[in-house]
Amino acid sequence: MARFSTNFMSESIKRAIPLEIVLPTDHCVMPNGPLPELNRPYRTLYYLEGSMGNSSGPVNYSHLQLLAEDYNLAVVVIGGENRWWGHATRLDEDYGDLVTVDVVNFTRRAFNLSRKREDTFIGGFSMGGHGAYVLGLRNPDLFGAIIALDASLQKMAISTSVNEKERWDPTPKSGYETILGLDKVEDWVGSDQDYEWLAKNLAEKAPEKKPAIFSACGTADGLYGFNQEYTAYLKGLGYDVTCYDVQDGLHNYFTCEAGLEAALKWLPLETQIHENYPYFGTTANVGFANFNGWKTLYNVEA
């Protein structure tokens, strides 16, 4: 249950920022059960939190860590400070590079994480889902798959934002212009922060690099329609898209987790720990009879 809550120095935003990493290295395993590939750098999911949240949210509010340990997956959790992962050029900060440059490089140097594209995934909930698409499509050499959970696809919100207070979206127009480095919000369309433009651009320029995409959304989530529209658009461009509906799911962590669970089954992950001594799910049974003979993964000889 190794969970690192740390602060690390980010060059892209010129200050320290909190980060959480969960690693399955000390998962308990039963001696005669199947084991994952040992001594192998971890497959990693870079997980982006939603707005109004930070890096501590996902592990605290969901079973993310249980799932990650069962699938032998490292997860790095990043909060976006309500900045929509944008090029905040006016403030000389970049919240996209924060993730794709600083967090990726820092975590790969600090932990035993795989540097292969097919082992590296980007995902997120709500604003994090928006970020997973934007950063995933803009960095096809880095990420082999994108996982979007109830993604808050902000095209409409950004383009119709106003500076008056009485609107449903608390970010005013000037706020979006600042955090996205735009002279005016209209310039977002067709930019390298526009997830539609990015999808089309990649499909045209380097179709062989298209990442695999998993999109989950609650059917009762207000964002469901936007997600259906976008995944249809992606399929039209030739992307490999798997859609997962969480029946009657609203915009909350229960829905997010249902989507995440399905996404992890979809990813090319090792399932041996899940079969050996699962922590998650109705088959989990961490009882007394098992106390003699268990080992932690880091002590098992390859």
């Binding site: 009657d248 799911g249 609203l250 909350n252 229960f254």
Partner: peptide, 12 residues
């Protein structure tokens, strides 16, 4: 907590 949670902004 729970499936009925709904973290979205409401008009006004």
């Amino acid at each position: 907590y729970g499936p009925e949670a709904n973290y979205t902004y409401d008009n006004n």
